[in-house]
Design a protein around this nucleic acid. Structure first.
Ligand SMILES: [Zn+2]
Ligand SMILES: [Zn+2]
Ligand SMILES: [Zn+2]
Ligand SMILES: [Zn+2]
Lengths: 160, 160
DNA sequence: GTATTAATGTAATATTATAACATTTCATTT
DNA sequence: AAATGAAATGTTATAATATTACATTAATAC
């Protein structure tokens, strides 16, 4: 398995092939560990998502996928997305109705998604401190936290 | 203007009329301050949203609004929602595609929305510490933050 | 009162997502 | 290897969410 990818490094211009390879290798390993099947369709959808760090919509994915399988339907994409999300390989950005590949699916991670509204890149970065603060708050409210949506829009270092 | 509403108190069983009144009074005041018009439609949509602390979808609102104006169309609702959100009177919960009334629109506030997946109530609670942590993180990434989506699903004190 | 701007009416359509059921593929057991 | 059962995919249809475009009406400014 390739090395862990560094949050900060990946946001600079970088050799993106490494990101793709890392994501796909992690996917194979995770699916095999979990005893679930990374089928050809699922793998291809993951590849398409990981082509860039820009969030991509389900119907954009469908258009791309159709180039290879012209009779593909929306449900094909959504099923693959559901699988990939359940496996932690892909995250949905709720505020965009779009999807990104996870660059650290092999690790437990507590992250925020930083979304640049200019260049449209979306990166997950570690936000352990934020989670700690949030869980302390939950505790004080006697709220039992289960699923967090944490998306910060703004301008990235390159675009600000 | 009525008193400020306390985050914690409102999550207990409470006299909800106070919430409604507070929201509507704040709305009048805020709109008048901003020099924008809280028209009958907009006010009514706000009332419908503030009927409970459960997030409500645009088409649910449309169904309710149609009881009074049977020829109302989706765009009527979305326009009112856009106005109310711009005025800070209503927030969209991205992870639900649904809307809640803001109980503290008159104040600057940095809040997280706690959403109970059982009873469906959604409350904004102050999360200044969370924001501080997040902004420190942004800073360290040279990311210029602009708009945060912060929604925590789980089980509220009553439902856990 | 007329001009200008803001709000609403009306129709159509775009975008995102799921349901229902048939068929095929894969893995397991025999 | 054939039979079985479960998972994945194919296929059709539709549900749910949201926006565009343009006409009309209402409010405000002059
Ligand atoms: Zn990359
Ligand atoms: Zn950028
Ligand atoms: Zn209340
Ligand atoms: Zn609850």
């Amino acid at each position: 398995m390739s090395e862990t990818i560094d949050n900060k490094a990946v946001q600079q211009p970088h050799n993106h092939k490494g990101c793709m390879q890392h994501a796909l290798q992690a996917a194979e390993q995770i699916c095999s560990q979990k005893g679930v099947r990374l089928t050809a369709i699922r793998k291809r959808i993951l590849e398409l998502i990981c082509t860039s760090h820009k969030a991509i919509g389900a119907y954009e994915l469908l258009d791309l996928f159709k180039l290879e399988d012209p009779k593909a339907k929306p449900v094909t994409i959504y099923r693959a997305l559901d699988f990939l999300m359940a496996a932690g390989l892909v995250h949905k950005i709720e505020s965009l109705n779009a999807f990104i590949g996870c660059l650290q699916a092999e690790k437990q991670h507590k992250s925020v998604i930083l979304i640049c509204d200019n260049c449209k890149n979306a990166y997950e970065v570690d936000a352990t401190a934020v989670y700690d603060s949030l869980f302390a708050l939950s505790e004080s409210m006697q709220f039992k936290p289960q699923c967090l949506t944490l998306e910060l829009h703004g301008l990235c270092a390159s675009c600000r």
